[in-house]
Design a protein around this nucleic acid. Sequence first.
DNA 1: CGCTATTGATAAGA
DNA 2: TCTTATCAATAGCG
Lengths: 170, 170
Amino acid sequence: MSKMPLGKGKKTKGRQPREIRLVEDEQSRQVTFSKRKAGVFKKASELSILCRANLAIVVFSKSDNAFAFGSPSVDAVLDGSAANEVEWEHLEALIRQTKEKGEEVKAEEARMRAIAEKIEEVQRKGGEQFWWQADVEQLGKAELPEFIKALERARDTVGHIMLRSTPPPQ
Amino acid sequence: MSKMPLGKGKKTKGRQPREIRLVEDEQSRQVTFSKRKAGVFKKASELSILCRANLAIVVFSKSDNAFAFGSPSVDAVLDGSAANEVEWEHLEALIRQTKEKGEEVKAEEARMRAIAEKIEEVQRKGGEQFWWQADVEQLGKAELPEFIKALERARDTVGHIMLRSTPPPQ
DNA sequence: CGCTATTGATAAGA
DNA sequence: TCTTATCAATAGCG
């Protein structure tokens, strides 16, 4: 509390943008982008681990820098090979193991991160890349031609578009 | 406060899983998946709007149901056509307009949602699909052949893999 | 780049 | 499903 002497002159700290506020300042935008991108990736990894869901994300910054994240890996996700089961088993085993030991995990710095590192380590030995997070620095959008066409075709295959994120009742 | 009579018997509500907890119960898993998926999509849309970033996400549930989300649209993102600029201008205009009016927006139900609906409405009239959120119910992973190959090729084009989400210093 | 205050996301419960 | 208590994500600043 000693850090907040003023009770009135709160210089709009914290996290207020409940109403949409476009980040126009090029400087801040970069920071915000990085932070939020990290947040999205983190949430994605949680979704993946907790629900055994495979997923892939591709993000283009304003300046067209590309970033990708996938679990178990971008191509594994898109390839849809059921071989992922094996990886998942391995992952769950690691998680339980880590929980049981429950020590070197400091809960703060650790959390999901610890597991990620664990996996990273194991995968490095095992050979297969489990987590995949690409940093496609120079890659412009124009350089992803096939990728593009493919998704469009995928959409056509689908046939319908909905504006909901929840699946229709079975 | 009247809703919390017990000061001791807190039945572990709230959100505690700071340590990884795999959702094994099939029932709960479905719920958790939907909630988290929604959360990820929301975060993604925020990142997109706030930072003018284009992105695309594909998620496969445990039962291989596919879901996609993209901004401005899945194909627009992957197509990388600079024509998106126009859309962005339009979007920002809408946001400012909405903010200025600042009334029918109840801040709670509204927030990002309001804008999304606004866009949805406009796009419906204009013809172009801006936001794209597909709910590929029956689509199994095996049905995305081209999509797959394409991304793999894209990765090869990239050439390197990093385990960071932040771009290397220029 | 790390801190804090503030708001948001969400696991359990009803 | 909807609500509510808790912990997490993050804007602005040092």
